[in-house]
Design a protein around this nucleic acid. Sequence first.
DNA 1: GAAAATCTGGACAGAAGTGTCCAGAATTTG
DNA 2: CAAATTCTGGACACTTCTGTCCAGATTTTC
Lengths: 219, 219
Amino acid sequence: MPEDGKPLGGHIKVTREDWLAAALHVLIHDGVDQVKVLTLSARLGVSRSSFYWYFGNRQDLLDALLDHWQNTNTAALIAQAETPARTVTAAICNVHKCVVNTELFDTALDFAVRDWARRSDKVRRALDLSDARRLAALAEMFRRYDYPRSEAEARARVLYFMQIGYDLAQLGETPQQRLRFAPDYLQVFTGRDPDPEALEDFRAYTAQYWTLDEDGART
Amino acid sequence: MPEDGKPLGGHIKVTREDWLAAALHVLIHDGVDQVKVLTLSARLGVSRSSFYWYFGNRQDLLDALLDHWQNTNTAALIAQAETPARTVTAAICNVHKCVVNTELFDTALDFAVRDWARRSDKVRRALDLSDARRLAALAEMFRRYDYPRSEAEARARVLYFMQIGYDLAQLGETPQQRLRFAPDYLQVFTGRDPDPEALEDFRAYTAQYWTLDEDGART
DNA sequence: GAAAATCTGGACAGAAGTGTCCAGAATTTG
DNA sequence: CAAATTCTGGACACTTCTGTCCAGATTTTC
């Protein structure tokens, strides 16, 4: 049975991707220090020896995790920032959509890496570089809507760090639930009158995450 | 020599506070998982046995660290939010001063606890409670300057999470260095014309952290 | 200054993790 | 289907950390 990779005998087969997926899960939920060969092998129901076929050692796995992060989140956010939109409001809504959409951007992974960076110089450098690139892309986005350079940079910082801080604090909400508040912030982010059309579009997009209570208020 | 607690013999005496201080340092710089009895004893130049005189086990130490955090940062921020100021701008400047002033508020500790909360339900609950209290205090602060309730709450979130995200991202700057940018954000935070007097006061306060380059620009 | 209370060092037992080696199971190739 | 390749299980050696016990050093008390 080579198809499903799970033959009948006592030997259970796993792929390199299985190890990576398990490591990613533990990294996000429990932090780097908990990404251990022993723990992962238990999760996968396989012996530790298998791990050393796919990876030289634990550090190789950690390096692979960092690579994975670099090739996903940062690329997605920058691509979104560079996508043209009709108004600033619309552009900001799109950035919000991107960060909330777990297909494109894994918020939890981003924070796990941020934690990790506090303990590893290598990760710290990778993160600093990514932050700088993301900020530059966002500043450039504001620039396209005729904000002066210094204001564009300031607003990029507000938008980016606000997003970060928001998710970091968590407050028991999921990223989707937090979207409820996003429309309220749009004017704060732009410093201009909101674009009603973009606002309505965003409201429609985020509506799928809302539920209405008895008074009709968003909850 | 009971005074300095460092007698001549091979026995080196440490206090419970020494253990706590060492643990705090490791918690901030390396994360909870690195707060180990063995590591701390090495830092203090004392044997592990001493630790078990002051603490029942490792978990007791961690509990003490959480207590310490609860009795410092949250109290300081709330007290500052409740202190009257002439204008919103001035009030926000004071909050900034409080968070930056390491005597009152240990930013690094706050983030270490935030990391920790991702791995411990007990810490998670303590953090959620503190965040809610801090946010409520900040919203109340905006309320005193005649913002409608919903806007006051939104602005409290922007201010609080912005501060958090700002520090989290770090970007190689110290909290003090980051103060340079604060005046640029004041209008974003208030949505009103800045109070020039408060602004000037804040500028003077933060000036001590600036250095001027050859062109006279803040660096 | 002797007795009592405090505190530390060192030895011991054990849990948990890493990395290596190699027989041999499972799969693919010829 | 036999041979070659790919991958896993189990045993071994080693390291790091936790927690316990207790003799005895140090300080405090009377």
